[in-house]
Amino acid sequence: MEILMSIVIGILFTCAVYLMLSKSLLRIIIGTGLLSHGAHLLLLTMSGLKTGAAPVLTEGITNYTDPLPQALVLTAIVISFGVTAFFLVLAYRAYQELGTDNMEKMRGTESHD
């Protein structure tokens, strides 16, 4: 199961990098979404995909799951949910102001020198 998940994570990261290298802003945002999905899946997988009872709650269990990665991944998901939402709104505003969602056309115009 871990091997399969590793491959899935690899595919997610690959797709994310491909999307983030494109010029369209929306694709870039989808790419960041996939990237954080990959990272979250990695976090779950790296701690071992065991099945078992809930720990602590009942006594005398030998086969239990590690609750920590689940708590961590929930936190990370919430954060990436918020950031992605912000990013979408930002992209929408930028599209309205700049009139384009093409990163090529968004290059700096004024010089800083």
Partner: peptide
């Protein structure tokens, strides 16, 4: 609150 604020911000414009 947050979810609805996001939806409204995008939807309103």
């Amino acid at each position: 609150g947050i979810t609805m604020t996001i939806i409204q911000t995008i939807g309103e414009s």
